[in-house]
Simulated scan of single mutants.
Amino acid sequence: MSESVSSGVSLSGGIVGYPSELLDEEVACIAYHFHWSLADIISLEHRDRRRWVGEIGKIKADD
Rank of each mutant, 00 (worst) to 15 (best):
L22R: 12
G8D: 08
G14S: 14
A28R: 05
V53T: 09
K60F: 01
A31C: 03
I41Q: 02
D63M: 09
D48M: 13
I15E: 14
L11S: 06
G17Y: 08
E45F: 08
S6M: 12
L23P: 00
G13D: 12
R47L: 09
D48Y: 05
E45P: 11
I56Y: 04
I59F: 06
E21R: 06
D48E: 15
M1N: 11
P19S: 09
P19W: 08
L44T: 03
V27H: 01
D48H: 10
A31W: 00
M1D: 12
I41C: 02
Y32G: 00
Y32R: 04
V5G: 09
M1V: 14
V16D: 07
S2D: 09
V53N: 02
S7E: 08
S7K: 07
I41A: 02
H35I: 00
E26F: 00
G8Q: 07
W36C: 02
M1L: 11
I30T: 04
W52D: 04
I15A: 12
R47T: 13
S4D: 08
W36L: 15
S43L: 02
R49H: 02
I56D: 02
Y32V: 00
W36H: 05
H33R: 04
H35C: 00
H33M: 05
G54Q: 07
L22E: 13
V16E: 11
L44I: 03
V53C: 09
C29N: 05
R49K: 15
V53Y: 04
I59T: 08
L44R: 04
K58Y: 07
L38E: 13
W36P: 00
S6F: 10
L44S: 03
G14N: 12
Y18P: 01
A31L: 01
V53K: 08
L22V: 10
I30L: 06
E21I: 07
V53R: 08
H35S: 03
S7P: 01
R51V: 10
S2N: 11
D40S: 15
S12Q: 07
G13P: 07
D40V: 03
L11Y: 12
L11D: 04
S43T: 03
I15W: 07
R50A: 12
G54W: 06
S12C: 07
P19H: 11
G57L: 04
D40E: 15
G57E: 09
D62N: 11
S6T: 10
K60D: 05
C29M: 11
P19A: 14
R49D: 01
S2I: 09
L44W: 05
D24S: 11
R51Y: 14
V27C: 04
S43M: 03
H35N: 06
A39K: 12
V9N: 13
A39E: 15
E25H: 08
I56W: 03
G54N: 09
I59Q: 05
L11F: 13
G17W: 05
L23Y: 00
K58M: 08
L38R: 08
A61I: 00
G54K: 08
W36A: 02
G13H: 10
R49A: 05
